[in-house]
């Protein structure tokens, strides 16, 4: 029997939306079962959320005090032990999955397929290379398939499932060489999570300063949108790193993406090419962002935002 194990991403109390997207990819494999594993210190609430994802057969709940934070060196040996029952192991290609999955794959002596964007068969996948400027179709060798899922390529599986939750104890030795010190959040407040947001308002170098970014936040709040930024804006210190959209930041697929003062470097465009509708506002009529924008407006972003806020 071939089964896929999806590693749940969560923060201890809430399941991250990336998990349901990874489940969509897992369902495309057409195997006998899709299971989800929640590794947590106290994970019953998260496991209940995972059990509701459509298409999931069983949620495995592995509780261990060491799982309080997602430290790859602790999680990897536990996943390796669980992997023996599966033909496939998948995780979202977020920083969580990117950090964790290669560690699992290497221990098991298996190569990894990163950033799966399409499933052709249970062993053949499409994935982006060169910052999304080429797409390769790859075939995994015989045996356990281990990969990460490019979440922007998949819609989240819906939420009407009723999987059973099984508590598992995994008896493996965990290393003592790594200590979690802390997590400093960029402070998105109550705004929608960038990777899950239906709408995203994003600012670039053209916004000019941290102070000026207030207008981006204000428009986002009016629209109920998440807030994104280009690498240039993050590098300039206008906004914390967790807002960065692009090849090395977050790859997102909102229905509406509004880019203000973003020129559209290739690395940024790699992060938004799956967006439904792209709006670009930039003073520079030659900015590359206009080459991918559905609606482009050559104008001063501050005047546009002011007018937009009045019109909404």
């Amino acid at each position: 029997m071939s089964k896929v194990l999806v590693i749940a991403e969560h923060d201890g109390s809430n399941l991250n939306g990336s998990t349901a997207r990874a489940v969509s990819c897992a369902s495309d494999l057409g195997l006998d079962a899709v299971d989800v594993v929640v590794l947590a210190a106290d994970g019953s609430a998260v496991a209940e959320q995972a059990a509701k994802i459509t298409g999931v057969s069983t949620v495995l709940l592995v509780q261990n005090a060491a799982n309080e934070n997602a430290v790859a060196a602790f999680l990897a040996p536990q996943i390796e032990a669980l992997a023996v029952d599966y033909s496939h192991v998948l995780a979202p290609s977020t920083t969580f999955g990117k950090d964790l999955i290669p560690r699992v794959a290497a221990h098991l002596g298996r190569p990894q397929i990163s950033d799966i964007m399409r499933v052709e068969s249970a062993t053949v996948f499409d994935r982006p290379v060169y910052a999304g400027n080429a797409v390769v179709t790859v075939e995994a060798p015989e045996g356990l398939v281990i990969g990460t899922v490019r979440t922007a390529s998949y819609k989240a599986a819906s939420n009407d499932g009723s999987a059973s939750v099984e508590t598992r104890s995994v008896d493996v030795a965990l290393p003592s060489h790594t200590r979690f010190v802390g997590l400093e959040s960029g402070g998105g407040g109550d705004r929608p999570d960038l990777q899950a947001a239906v709408k995203v308002v994003s600012g670039g170098r053209g916004v000019g300063s941290e102070e000026n970014f207030k207008v981006i936040y204000s428009l986002a709040d009016k629209l109920g949108a998440g807030v994104g930024a280009s690498r240039a804006a993050v590098d300039a210190g206008f906004i914390p790193n967790d807002h960065q959209v692009g090849q090395t930041g977050k790859i997102i697929a909102p229905d509406l993406y509004m880019a203000f003062g973003i020129s559209g470097a290739i690395q940024h465009l790699a992060g938004i090419k799956d967006a439904g509708t792209i709006v670009a506002v930039n003073k520079d009529a030659d900015a590359p962002i206009f080459e991918v924008a559905d609606y482009g407006l050559v104008a001063d972003l501050f005047e546009v935002i002011e007018e937009l806020e009045k019109a909404l």
Partner: peptide, 20 residues
């Protein structure tokens, strides 16, 4: 190590520019 085999490489679906 066992290798992943690249079957083919293609250009990505191009996003067309919309309107100004």
């Amino acid at each position: 190590a066992p290798a992943v085999k690249v079957l083919k490489t293609v250009a990505p679906a191009k996003r067309e520019a919309g309107i100004k």
